[in-house]
Simulated scan of single mutants.
Amino acid sequence: MVFIRTLIVYLVVIISLRIMGKRQLGELQPSDLVITILISNVATISLEDTELPLLHGIMPILELVLFEMIISWISLHSVKVRRWVSGSPKIIIHNGEIDQKVLHDLRFTLDDLMTTLRTNGIFSPEEVQFAIVETNGTVSILQKPEYQTATKKDVSAVQPCTDPPEIVIADGELREKTLHALGLDRQWIDEILKAESLNIRDIFLLTADSAKQYYLVALSH
């Protein structure tokens, strides 16, 4: 009896998800993710409480699927509802400049941003034309033309081999270990600060490589 009950709940959940037409977990919108989690929890209750009539466990799942289909249909025909339910894409980098306010609003840390860039083969925000946080949480990145593969810049000159840029200063705090790992010292930092007329606490982001090439973003007030 338990086996049959489990099989029925399993089939109902699978069919429900197929009806919703959703794909991978990372592609779900916030509302879709909530519905998926709720269906999972309701199905768990149906499996754990064998004294609960099976129909009482299945009906909430079907109701959630119906609710999701209604919301999806309304969102499909209404831009306002779609933006309210799913939100809208946010630009966090434009022409190599990080939008600190949007980054803060999205609770996106500098480490999160740099990790995302590195996973896309980019080691400096300066190389980015656009970086957009999509409504499902993924980040779409467009590199500047001169940094894209097989450009004239790539063919005409052989670039020196250096270590990838690392975060040296983030949110006004100096990362001494990273600085030393790159073979740089505090004197070099002081020279940069003097040239830029800034203090460490005035810097939102400073990345550098072993060739002393750096990228700096001042903290916006």
Rank of each mutant, 00 (worst) to 15 (best):
K144S: 06
R82L: 05
P164Q: 11
F123S: 07
S124D: 06
P165C: 08
E97P: 07
I71A: 01
D163P: 09
D112S: 10
G87C: 04
F108N: 15
L113F: 07
T151E: 04
K90N: 07
H77E: 02
M59L: 13
P145C: 00
L66A: 10
T109L: 12
I74F: 07
T116F: 12
L76S: 10
Q148F: 07
G137P: 01
G96D: 03
D111K: 14
L64P: 00
E126W: 05
I93C: 01
V139D: 01
T151Q: 05
M59K: 04
A170F: 11
A157F: 13
R118F: 06
E127R: 00
T135F: 01
I93R: 02
Q100P: 04
A170Y: 13
V155F: 15
I74G: 04
A150L: 13
I91E: 06
D154Q: 09
D163T: 15
I71D: 00
I167R: 08
E173C: 10
M114H: 10
R175P: 07
L106K: 12
R83P: 03
G87H: 04
I92N: 03
R107A: 15
H77C: 06
P125N: 09
S72P: 00
Q100E: 12
H104P: 11
T109N: 11
I132F: 03
D112Q: 12
T162K: 13
Y147H: 04
P160C: 05
T138L: 02
T115G: 13
R118P: 01
S72E: 05
Q159S: 14
E63N: 09
F130D: 02
M59H: 02
G87E: 00
E68Q: 09
N120D: 08
E146I: 09
L113C: 03
L174E: 06
E97C: 14
Q143R: 05
I70S: 03
E68S: 12
L117W: 04
I91V: 12
I61G: 03
L62V: 10
T115I: 12
I169A: 11
H104V: 13
H77W: 07
M69N: 10
V85E: 07
D112H: 10
L174R: 06
S86Q: 11
T151H: 02
V102K: 12
H56W: 07
C161W: 14
I132H: 02
